[in-house]
């Protein structure tokens, strides 16, 4: 039985992943900003088989709240061995390009606060000599593109941070799992026209659970995104700059 902390548990993708943990009989500690939605998800995960589900309201942007939240999760679950960081925002690229404060805010949520959280978790897991740390990044982090480079660069920072963390924690036996979803049909992308590349949150949630179970270092979900991003990152600038990506 895993003892799982999910930060940003009210996200659609996180909820789908959590259902797999619940069905496997894992204990869960959830955080999110909306108390009512946390309560509804708590009830659901209990019905689906999680022996313990506890929840705490927290805004992950508030770095000073992290340590107490992790302590509370450990106390509620009697320890901690798996963390999934699932929150994030998809900022409006045009607003971020126009306003430095918007760009920095997007970085604070998608990179800075995650790095703060993962640093605290990493130190604890390194001391206990075990555990799995997973965070949802994005294929957008593989190459900066005009359409979403502020979001993409924050995820790129997170990717490099997690690569280094994985390297550091290898000796301690701690797994670090970077999840890179492509486009997913969730409230975050509600305003997008959905093409054939959009995946369901059910599929992505199942892939996340599998990646954590296996300790996959970098998980593209759905898997075809690894090929797409390999091509996009390999495009020579002379061609890349003429695309509308």
């Amino acid at each position: 039985m895993r003892k799982v902390l999910i930060v940003g548990a009210t996200s659609t993708i996180a909820e789908q992943a959590a259902r797999h943990f619940a069905a496997a009989g894992d204990a869960l500690f959830l955080t999110g900003r909306n108390e009512e939605r946390l309560a509804a998800i708590t009830d659901d995960l209990q019905v689906r088989g999680a022996p313990t589900v506890a929840a705490r309201v927290m805004d992950a942007d508030d770095l000073s709240a992290h340590a107490a939240m992790i302590d509370a999760a450990k106390a509620a679950l009697g320890g901690l061995d798996t963390v999934l960081v699932a929150y994030g925002t998809l900022p409006d690229q045009a607003a971020c390009a126009a306003d430095p404060a918007a760009a920095v805010a997007a970085w604070h949520t998608n990179a800075v606060s995650v790095i703060a959280l993962l640093t605290d978790i990493a130190n604890r897991f390194e001391r206990q000599g075990s555990g799995t740390i997973a965070a949802i990044s994005s294929v957008a982090g593989d190459r900066g593109r005009a359409s979403n480079y502020v979001y993409g660069s924050a995820k790129a920072g997170l990717n490099a941070f997690m690569d280094g963390l994985r390297h550091r924690l290898f000796a301690a036996g701690v797994q670090v799992v970077t999840i890179r979803p492509g486009m997913v049909d969730t409230p975050m992308t509600a305003d997008f026209d959905k093409g054939p590349l959009f995946a369901s949150p059910e599929k992505v949630g199942a892939d996340i659970h599998k990646a954590i179970e296996k300790g996959t270092a970098v998980c593209y979900t759905p898997g075809f995104w690894r090929l797409i991003m390999t091509i996009i990152t390999a495009l020579p600038r002379a061609i890349f700059h003429r695309t509308g990506l």
């Binding site: 659609t12 509804a40 998800i41 009830d43 659901d44 019905v47 689906r48």
Partner: peptide, 9 residues
């Protein structure tokens, strides 16, 4: 479709 949670069983 998003209201797909169990409440109690």
């Amino acid at each position: 479709g998003g209201l797909d949670r169990f409440i109690a069983f």
